[in-house]
Design a protein around this nucleic acid. Structure first.
Lengths: 213, 213
DNA sequence: TAGATTGTTAATCGATTAACAATC
DNA sequence: TAGATTGTTAATCGATTAACAATC
């Protein structure tokens, strides 16, 4: 990786490239041009080339990119070579959906534990995984060296869960609660507030329907 | 609303403001400055003021913004005054999580129907809602005038579901599948590919852990 | 060689931020 | 009036895009 600054927007697109390449590899497409790759995912070819160029020269002029090679480069760039153990706090509907999501393992992620504080839920099983008492979270994080935590609890509980995660060594938080969480700057926080996302969709929907009526 | 172009990034922030204001209104905070509002959600005050200024002059110089007034303006701007009927296709874990999500109604959205094509699931109930046969989707969309559809099906089925939604009059699609969907330009498409989002988090996590070790 | 496509530079476009006059 | 905060302009910063020499 070169030393200079990489645009945030580029990083957001890397997983999209990676995913598309996985699909092409499965279908045994051997070589792809930035033009073709871009077309499949709705990104201009110049942007594809520029994004990749921040990390190296992966293509061959006049030819294109070899799919398996580029895919492996992206896997490494994204940090998906070694599997990341992760934990989920909150065994409600969303927590369950995430646990059951089959795609994590394929992408080098593995849900190692689920925690909740509701006695009616603790001890039940979700897809081979026993829901554990939230009290035991810290111990597990340290035992297993877990660095990645998912917050799928109600807004009121989110900051406390985050604090406890951070204190036990978690370095990346995927936050599904609507709370704006405070974490130290060496902790990577990613907010996935679905209702915020939906409201932005409704804004555009409302606007386009108003205009056409 | 003024005539000129509003930055995409501004639109993405509006729901965050709206949500914060809802919380403040509940706690009976009457007036808030751009400074204070921004602080709560991690957005600089100048940006708060600029974003709001695209839609009007909602504040009072020397004073700030009246919370209930600004909240109502944002509700209107976002198109959340009248409730939007929506439908979900795919009654798997994610579909279930979305149906059970209590927050939609509060934000002017209402899940009117759920569809699936699995005979073992059709006819079962999820939170008062009967899972219907996917065959009947088109009829329902037209009967109820539904404009908003959620795609929570496997990648292979996503484009077909999208096509059928579009042909029946859906104007906004919230796509949870990893497929890059093709829709006419008057249809608003929002992709919510969770594994893409997670990979971007892992990228940063990996990078920060590498550096500190 | 002729045709294709990369990697990169420079131009353009868009978003954020600082600063301050207006005004409560 | 003195202090506070908006709304807006202009400067800065960052991202996208066009264009093309390098090269397969």
């Amino acid at each position: 990786m070169k030393g200079f600054k990489i645009p945030k927007t580029t990083v957001e697109r890397l997983p999209i490239y990676y995913r598309a390449l996985l699909g092409m590899e499965k279908r045994e497409i051997e070589v792809i041009s930035s033009q073709d790759l871009g077309q499949r995912i709705g990104i201009p070819s110049a942007q594809v080339r520029k994004d990749l160029s921040y990390y190296g020269e992966f293509g061959r002029r006049g030819v294109g990119y070899e799919v398996p090679i580029l895919r492996r480069h992206l896997q490494k760039i994204l940090g998906l070579e070694k599997p990341w153990p992760m934990l989920i706090v909150g065994a409600g509907n969303l927590g369950r959906a995430l646990i059951n999501y089959q795609g994590f393992l394929r992408h080098g992620l593995e849900v190692k534990a689920v925690f909740d504080n509701d006695p009616r839920v603790i001890g039940t099983y979700i897809h081979n995984l026993k829901v554990e008492n939230l009290e035991e979270m810290e111990e597990k994080i340290q035992q297993e060296g877990i660095k990645l935590g998912v917050i799928a609890v109600p807004a009121e509980a989110a900051q406390e869960v985050a604090d406890r995660m951070v204190n036990s060594g978690i370095k990346g938080i995927w936050n599904f609660s609507p709370e704006h969480l405070h974490v130290p700057e060496d902790v990577n926080l990613r907010n996935e507030d679905l209702s915020v996302s939906l409201m932005a969709l409704v804004y555009h929907l409302n606007y386009s329907i108003e205009r056409s009526e």
